[in-house]
Design a protein around this nucleic acid. Sequence first.
DNA 1: AGTGCTATTGCAAAATGTTGCAATAAACCC
DNA 2: GGGTTTATTGCAACATTTTGCAATAGCACT
Lengths: 147, 147
Amino acid sequence: MKKHKDLLQVLKANNMRITPARRFLLQFILDSKKHAGIKTGQITLKSITRFMEKILPGVNRSSIYRNIEAFKKLDIIQEISLPSGSFFQYVFDCKVHHFYICKSCGKASVGNEKLFNKIEAALKDIHGFAKANLSIVFYGYCSKCGH
Amino acid sequence: MKKHKDLLQVLKANNMRITPARRFLLQFILDSKKHAGIKTGQITLKSITRFMEKILPGVNRSSIYRNIEAFKKLDIIQEISLPSGSFFQYVFDCKVHHFYICKSCGKASVGNEKLFNKIEAALKDIHGFAKANLSIVFYGYCSKCGH
DNA sequence: AGTGCTATTGCAAAATGTTGCAATAAACCC
DNA sequence: GGGTTTATTGCAACATTTTGCAATAGCACT
């Protein structure tokens, strides 16, 4: 797993400057990725702004929004959008292509890679979609929320 | 395909009143569904508010938002969320469970139903997801946007 | 360390969403 | 039509997100 320093290199490589706001934002993102699996409500715009207002009160909201967008473009994080709202995931060294998300509790989990590959192949046959850069999201009700 | 009148019946059946705003909103939704396939940028909150401000200038934003939520609950429309924004689809008489969406141009198309059923079965085996109410969204690049 | 270039920020104003509450008007009965 | 009930609306205040622009501060070069 990549570390803070590696990510700073990514910024530099993309002609982006290292600012206090970016350091802290990166650290926040890295810290949120403590478990192998993906948990609910990890990184949201709300949690980020709450954190930043606490740690770096000087930072303006607009900078946070702009940096989140920038990190998305660099594929440091990935945005998962649901009707109930969006959240972000650290995916720099392990880009996730296949999740399943519970419509009820919002829990997002990484899907089975073998299944993903099979589906990807089937998709390629049937639809006009290129294989590269495909990602799949399943929405359903998890065993806990059942019904 | 259901018509305006049928939808009004749905509202009544759910103890909801017929107001001018709802009439026009329903009509807007029905009008946007002129083709069999699903096209880009059809119904967004922006397009709705623009339309309503033109046709019924008196209607408040909050009423529009609340009615959109209400129509979602009644499964008259379905919300598709993407990092680039959300849009809505009329799905009352043809609820769509399976799409593919181009990450580049945003074009959303209805997926192949046979494939959907196969995937659904595989999912049920592998994940802890209940079969009911499953929906699947594929993100990728369409043949037009390529790569 | 000082200088120059320019990416980034803060700021302010606007756009877009959300919420509680009192006023309004659909719908039903007579 | 007039009266009653209550779902719906408009309003106002607030929260969130977006945008243009001038000021700031990273960074490269000396």
